[in-house]
């Protein structure tokens, strides 16, 4: 087992003082300009000119983007903005038409998905991919990397892999306990609820000891009771030194946990910045609402719109009364 495995096995936040990594990440990003493609002090992932076309539609057209190491970065944008496609490109699940990106200074363009995962960038999926007819613990064991027993020639000889299997099982059980899935250890993954599957998928991804975790809509289909616990687990990833990039629609979640937000619209990155800055950014409001600011994005905006609407109603009322009097 790699030496740094203790990193993932400890109680969340025990190795580092609780929340301190958030402060570090926020401080590091404080002086970064709030503009698309802004350079970061310590980027783990740098992408340039990544494009992907489906026929005439340009789904992704990202000029330049950097993801800060050790921070939680949210990738948001309206439906069809190309977030998931961009995710698929970065993780090797789709091939770009053009583009270059480097993860830890290693080029990952056109590297197959399984190698991307081996280099330490592991993803989850929007539609959870629990392996239904494997038990929870088998799902977890599958996540471990570098298993000797996964080579055909070694597979036949149990002594070649038995010890490693025991170590992986021990680590899997610790992770399951952390994610409160230990009571489900020997159940089929297919029998878990939607939220538990999300937890299992995240825990399974952690078995490979990644440096960067890519979460595609971690909150989709999760009941509110589990949301808080999932949020806590995502924050834990940062506390353990991992970098997180996630796609999400739930703005409350984005506001709550992300250190930095990247906004995509129509395949392009239109804004970047800390959550509160980004949500007040007119470019973002335009991206979401197509230039018609029907729905409020901030409280002040809400107040202003309410006042405007009331004034309008009163005016109409007055006009109607005027009509009635005539």
């Amino acid at each position: 087992m790699p030496a740094d495995s203790s990193f993932h096995t400890g109680v969340p936040g025990a190795t580092v003082q609780n929340g301190s990594r958030k402060a570090v990440a926020v401080a590091a990003l404080a002086d970064v300009p709030r503009e698309p493609g802004a350079p970061k002090p310590d980027p783990i992932l740098v992408a340039d000119d990544v494009t992907r076309r489906f026929g005439g539609l340009t789904a992704v057209d990202v000029k330049h983007v950097e993801i800060q190491r050790g921070a939680i970065t949210a990738l948001i944008g309206p439906n069809g903005a190309g977030k998931t496609t961009f995710f698929n490109l970065l993780t090797g699940f789709d091939r770009p038409d053009t583009g270059e990106w480097r993860f830890n200074d290693r080029s990952l363009a056109r590297v197959p998905a399984h190698k991307v995962a081996r280099y330490g960038m592991v993803r989850t999926f929007q539609l959870t991919k629990a392996l239904s007819r494997l038990t929870v613990i088998e799902n977890m064991r599958l996540g471990a990397g570098g298993q000797r027993g996964e080579r055909l020639m070694n597979a036949l000889f149990r002594p070649a892999w038995a010890q490693q299997e025991r170590d992986n099982t021990a680590r899997a059980e610790e992770l399951l306990a952390r994610f409160k899935l230990d009571t489900k250890r020997d159940d089929f993954a297919g029998s878990l609820s939607g939220g538990q599957r999300k937890l299992l998928e995240m825990a399974r991804a952690l078995m490979s000891e990644p440096e960067m975790v890519m979460l595609d809509e971690p909150m989709a289909g999760v009941n509110p009771a589990l949301t808080q616990s999932l949020l806590g687990h995502v924050k834990d990833l940062r506390e353990q030194g991992m970098t997180v990039l996630f796609v999400e629609h739930d703005m409350d979640m984005v506001r709550d946990i992300s250190d930095w937000v990247i906004v995509m619209a129509q395949g392009k990155i239109v804004a970047e910045g800390p959550p509160d800055d980004v949500m007040a950014n007119p470019a973002v409001i335009d991206a979401y609402l197509g230039g018609h600011h029907d729905a409020p994005l901030t409280e002040a905006e809400e107040q202003r719109q309410l006042a405007a609407a009331e004034a309008e109603l009163e005016a109409e009322h007055a006009a109607a009364e005027g009509d009635g009097a005539r």
Binding site: T91, F93, A113, H114, K115, A117, R118, V122, R123, T124, F125, K129, A130, L131, S132, R133, L134, L142, G143, G145, E201, R204, A205, M207, S208
Partner: peptide
Amino acid sequence: EDEDAVRSLG
């Protein structure tokens, strides 16, 4: 069960 999930695990 799901080959993409397995691929995502390296």
